[in-house]
Design a protein around this nucleic acid. Structure first.
Lengths: 185, 185, 185, 185
DNA sequence: AATGAATGAGACTTCATTCAT
DNA sequence: CATGAATGAAGTCTCATTCAT
């Protein structure tokens, strides 16, 4: 039931998993308390379903911001920019996925492992096209993901005053040349 | 008081904030239930105290792994390596700080903002010494912190099979030259 | 709901507000502890409901003891007699209303203000019929109410050995001629 | 220890018996928590001591407002006036004595029985001097006391806008001639 | 499928009282 | 006599879940 899932999103987003209540969810959904159990088995169950649902949404939003003709660096820049924008528009969603670490570690790991896998695939593609250097692996994907997530937390969820593009450009420049001083060759 | 804080660390680390109980803490500490309230006002109160305590500990461990004669890149590498090692030895602590995002957002922000400030200071020092490029700012510190934290999560907390040094070296290489293919000069 | 209110009456009456417990109420009512909270929000809440309920009961008992054809003095006499009898039969109720002064002053004031208003109306009626002297007001009602209440406390709650009628007659004689010696006219 | 008794008066008066705390009393008294138990055995113990202390104070205030040369009616009028004034100046004290009904019924009964006895003595004196009619007894004393107490509650504690003298005059007139219409003889 | 009253385990918190210093 | 940390019993309230209608 979509109504319940939307209500759960609002309830969990606003109050956090433990302060959220089933009755709060059904109140928002406009259904009877008991009806909740027609669609979900437990409180953890909705939460799990919700995390998966949202994880999928982030994925789609970011995915659809990428074009097949983008360069590998452009792709990373666009991915971060769209992620940042998404985080701004869906602060609750972000919070919910993070809380999964404590409520349902399985969903949490799944979300980040899936994301890392996708990033790693992009890195491989960049290697193949000759833009990225060879030899990158899972750890690089996690490093990149961490960078993106923390920029999303700091400049998406906590404060959204800086243009997403500026931050995406900063991240891109780190990827392009690191942070070393120009080798004055 | 120290006894209670240690007990709280074990209890919160093992069961998470909400499943942890005051009676669990005092049982571990070997004190009477009521004694808890001689030192802390509420469950949130110990948690807050604990997060600050641990935040300070990470800081000290990482700080003491850095030497004054290290190069800027060496410093970053050492910082990540010691952080990874610390995360491996103190998986609970890591988990507790992260849970603060939901239990006591103030402490959580404080922890990451303080950390970011310290990283930014290192970046400035690197700029001054000519190793790092000029013009870096807060956003770069957050990107770097995110990289470190996620490597810590993936390779410290979730799995500790890879040598911390290898991961630190990977991160260092990203910082040194980014991920672009060698400019075939 | 009624079951709970009755149980609350017994519990509060027997043990007083602070020694009474919700679990004592539900035990008497034969319901689960949690069911209490389906009908009342807090312990204060039942207490308030109970005071109103009982205040209303005293009113009805006294009211129904009065007849339209009674003289004004007869009315006062009958009111006191029925009040005394009621106090004897419901010592707990009396105790509960009085405890409201400390637990829920609002209900307490409401009870006595309502009662005073009713008494004042009787005084006015007596004035109109020419039995009572003119010019009486709220203060006279309070004086009369205090007289009744203290006789109820002393000879209803504390001891019930004297016939209610005798006491009502004493009160009536005070109202009829005061306590001055006969003006030897 | 007078300091503790005064502190207890403030604490009990402000928060009521059950919300009052020993630590609240010692905090007000400026002594250590443990010192309380040097002077009193239990919380009930101070309360009892306090009620007696205050009961005695009312008695003295009222007593000292009466002169040996007053007529019996004047005496009653003055007693009520001084009682009203006292209630206005010591609203807490009034509240404390009343709460004794629930906390320490013994003190409560003692207070009112003593007061009734004193009033009855005044009635007898009035009878002897020929001002009051003969044949009055305990019940008359309780009726008179109830009148006074309720006027004290309504016009002393709840609201003090009306002059104590006016109210005392009203009560006196009830005593002098009751509330019957003038027998137009 | 929907409803919502009933259930009861469980946890936080308070505070009178003790006692070693 | 004073101190105040320690004690632990006790009680209120929440809420996920069930189930008869």
């Amino acid at each position: 039931m979509r109504k319940l899932l939307d209500a759960a999103e609002a309830e969990f987003g606003e109050r956090g998993f433990h302060d959220a209540s089933i009755s709060g969810i059904t109140r928002r959904a406009g259904t009877a308390l008991g009806s909740f159990y027609t669609y979900f088995d437990t409180k953890d169950d909705v939460f799990r379903a919700l995390v998966r649902d949202m994880s999928e949404r982030v994925r789609q939003v970011v995915g659809s911001s990428l074009g097949p003709d983008m360069s590998a660096f452009q792709t990373e820049e666009a991915a971060l920019a769209s992620f940042l924008t998404f985080a701004r528009d869906h602060k609750e969603i972000y919070r919910i996925i993070d809380e999964a670490e404590f409520v349902d570690p399985g969903s949490y790991r799944e979300h980040y492992e899936t994301t890392a896998t996708r990033i790693e695939a992009r890195l491989k593609a960049g290697e193949k096209s000759g833009e990225f250097r060879a030899g990158m692996e899972e750890a690089h994907a996690w490093a990149l993901m961490g960078m993106n997530v923390f920029l999303g937390l700091r400049y998406g969820v906590w404060s959204d005053s800086r243009p997403a593009e500026d931050l995406a450009a900063i991240a891109r420049s780190i990827l392009e040349r690191g942070i070393a001083a120009d080798r004055g060759d």
